[in-house]
Amino acid sequence: MSVSAIRRLILIGLLISIGAALSVANPSFLTLDNLMTMLQEASLTGIVAIGFTLVLITAGIDMSIGAVIAITSMICVNFISYTSLPAYIFIPIALAMGCLIGWFNGFFITYFKLPEFIVTLATRGILTGLALIAAVKDSQGFVKNVFIQDELFLSFGETVGPVYIVVIVFFVLALATQFFIKRTRAGSNVYATGANPTAARLTGIDTDRTLIGVYMFSGFCAALASIFLCARMMTAMPEFGIGSEMDVIASVVIGGTPFTGGIGDIWGTVIGTLFLALIKNGILKLGLSPYIQPIVIGGIIVVTVVLDVWYKGFAEQRVAKLARQKQMPTREGV
């Protein structure tokens, strides 16, 4: 069994055992309502994390995702407040804006060869400011967060049976993205670009196009999550999503996609997202001090990363040994 498969099994095992422990500790944990809200929470982070995973696979980083959530929510609320356009028109426009922001990130990264961190951090700053400027104001110029009553828009926050629509969208998007990166040429290009950009270029891969595409997808995912967030909260705030980058990064890293590029997949991210949501929910259920939450999450990240590095070293030794053994027979033949 491969390293990543073992890692994944351990994580799933932990997921189940923590879940079981929580069910015993607090009877309200194992209720349909609680599981569904937990999945809803996980999905809002998870949709963003799917796009972010692809960025990490290319060895990049996208710090602008939180700000994309903010600006998308502002775009929607402006349409709702100042136009009579129906949701099925302005939602695609908002999603396209997410892609466009991603395109800008990708363009600056590839065309000017700027570091991803700097570019997306700058984008984050610009969008944060724009979101405040774009926010709906009252007659005296004070930001007024609108209570959304557009029924079609709000239906994004509804459920199908007991399951929130956002959860269904999250799993469908995960499935599609996993299929895309593993089973299409464009998906292979994403891995190749992250693992070894020079080699990828030499093989004839247009790494710039791949990168731009990945950042566009990341922007799209953040915009999509924003719509579900607005529908859930029935409002839009210019600070929506700002600061949520950390949860997204944590989910992806716990899921086993490292910062070094070329490795990782969506299933890992799905598990990582569920894991994080479970921990957060569990902290509330145990009635622990709220200050514990960031400490626990930080701790989990450190532990997973340390274990990853430790296991990687171990696996490399084993591989080196295997490689040496493979070499033996040919050597004696000389």
């Binding site: 292979s188 290009n189 891995y191 190749a192 693992a195 070894n196 080699a199 990828a200 093989t203 070329g262």
Partner: peptide
């Protein structure tokens, strides 16, 4: 070497 780490022999041969 212009090979992609993490990919199989077949994936590398047929990349793109």
């Amino acid at each position: 070497l212009s090979l992609i780490h993490g990919m199989s022999v077949a994936q590398n041969i047929f990349l793109t």
